[in-house]
Design a protein around this nucleic acid. Structure first.
Lengths: 328, 328
DNA sequence: TATTGATGCGGGAACGTTCCCGCACAAGAC
DNA sequence: GTCTTGTGCGGGAACGTTCCCGCATCAATA
């Protein structure tokens, strides 16, 4: 330490002074602190981490949308999830490092990550496998439940789908259609299964439109396609993320009034749903709570150094919006 | 190294073997690699960083929206900027660490950051001052131009505003109104100045509506307020970020046809603008290019270890959309 | 005056790498 | 058979901290 030399003290003493530890006379402590300040000294974080044995860094990857690496942030759900995760991590004393989707890369093998969060992994995600093989703790969704070194948080898909379809039915919809992304994410797979089960229970034929790629365009086209089917559905459960006002636009273009002709629920965190014309009922996957609960779990697992897998299941929140019966 | 003991080799030899350096017989190299693999050895990244003297970590903060720390990701502009910055950083061999807005905190004093990106700083941002005082390289917008240890990338606001207003005028708008966030971000301040200058040049009275807080609701209300002014504006330059379809909804609710009654340009990266009814012309601040150019500049400045400040100015892109003259 | 105990500070090791050496040994040249 | 050159491997230092000690010094007690 050059501060030590400058102050005529030993590095031990300076370290103790700056950290407020050890037994030091007020005079010496003062002197050390003063010269450090004067010299603009900042302790080397890397050396600290090496000594401490931990870097307090957590990796963050979104498995879905692997095609266009960072497109997920365009989705309000992931934007919220990412922000909330980062906030929660910092509150627990960890920092979040943004990583690209894909396999465990040489690019970030040099990062001292204590764990990696894999949000919405695809089915049998190779990244998850690589991480577990490398003995790096993984935090993801329920698809990793039970595996050693893996923890998870997830949404009760079955309950969420049931509640949504029941709500549409209570509003009068007997023939609800489903608009679903063509993806292997756990939530989407389970949604399809739950929708089918619901239809079977109610003796309703299934009306599923798959959206090939993410983005407003494809979803709007899928909605139009779903609404022009014969017989026309009287309910719409849009699970693919799109701007809710655009879904309303699509219905309007087809001459359909919402909710008179067709009742709509969008799975979306987009705030514009509340201001759409008419307002759109949404099902929230509660990204903020997922991040909060998940991070608590991850941190406690990390501190406890526990390989014993843990997880928590949250329930989605339906935000039913009184449609203003706006004249079309 | 326990791998060295296990393989009956020295740590030097094992290190050389795993890194592919040094002069080693194929047999020994093979043996070292093999035992390392068998033992699941992963080199300690922190120790590597300490030895290398650099951590290849860059901090990322968004100065605007300081009230609700992570709300900025809700904005498509910042979502894109964040994703693109992260991608560019990784391509250059750096990783991005997400940090909360506000002053230089103890929370992340322990992170070995080589630089910090401050996107959209507020006026005289205290964070920027703290970072520069701590001799941490700062990357931000043109407001830090010329300061030692600070580099920047920015958009040519003046040209962007002029082009947009000229385009509205070419479409027939003689009385364009401005809807602007009430913020101290450089872009917003300069936008107001450029708008005023344009109005002065064309002998048009200024019509400015300030939006007190971010979010769709406040912006929509501001748009309605602007459109109900007397005399009613025949052009609208919406700089506050909102969902473009909602802006169209607002005009429609007021019985105004776009673009027949009022021509509209939204400053927005929201993809839904293209699918709105009618499609909305937008001014793109090109977050992807800003991230790309900015990161190149930052990395070269970092490698050159240069304190000599550098910057680059980009021009915004107007995406004029042929409105479909949709019957209202 | 000796013994104990507390106080104030510094020496040295350790964290896990990488890199500069030096040493041993073998092969080639004379 | 010696001298040189090259090859293969290991010892040790260094990166910048923190922490465990030990060694003085000094006051308080017997």
């Amino acid at each position: 330490m050059d501060v030590a030399r400058e102050a005529g003290l030993s590095k031990t003493t300076v370290s103790a002074a700056l950290n407020g530890t050890g037994r030091l006379s007020p005079a010496v402590r003062q002197k050390a602190v003063e010269t450090a300040r004067r010299m603009g000294y900042r302790p080397n974080a890397t050396a600290r981490q090496l000594r401490a044995g931990r870097a307090r860094l957590i990796g963050y990857v979104v498995g879905e949308f692997a095609g266009e690496p960072w497109a997920y942030l365009d989705s309000p759900y992931f934007a919220r999830l990412t922000g909330a995760t980062s906030a929660a991590a910092l509150r627990h004393g960890y920092a979040l490092v943004m990583l690209p989707a894909g396999t465990l890369q040489r690019e970030w093998a040099d990062l001292p990550l204590e764990a990696v969060i894999v949000a919405d992994p695809v089915q049998d995600d190779p990244l998850v496998e690589d991480l577990l093989a490398a003995r790096i703790p993984v935090f993801s969704d329920a698809s990793v439940a039970g595996r050693t070194g893996a923890h998870w948080v997830d949404i009760d898909t079955d309950a969420a789908v049931r509640e949504s379809l029941d709500h549409l039915r209570a509003g009068g919809a007997r023939r609800p259609a489903l608009v679903l992304p063509d993806s292997t994410t756990r939530f989407h797979r389970e949604t399809l299964a739950a929708y089918r089960a619901w239809c079977a229970r109610h003796g309703t034929p299934e009306r599923v439109t798959l959206v090939p790629t993410p983005g407003n365009g494809p979803v709007v086209r899928a909605v139009e396609q779903a609404l022009t089917a014969d017989p026309r559905p009287d309910g719409l459960f849009v699970v693919a993320e799109a701007s809710p006002p655009l879904v309303m636009d699509a219905a309007r273009r087809l001459g359909l009034a919402v909710p008179a002709d067709v009742r709509v629920i969008c799975v979306s965190e987009d705030e514009s749903a509340a201001h759409a014309d008419p307002p759109v009922s949404t099902l929230s996957l509660r990204p903020a709570d997922v991040a909060e609960e998940g991070m608590s779990l991850l941190v406690s697992a990390l501190e406890a150094d526990g390989d014993t897998p843990q997880g928590v299941l949250l329930t989605a929140r339906l935000r039913a919006r009184k449609s203003s019966m706006h004249r079309n």
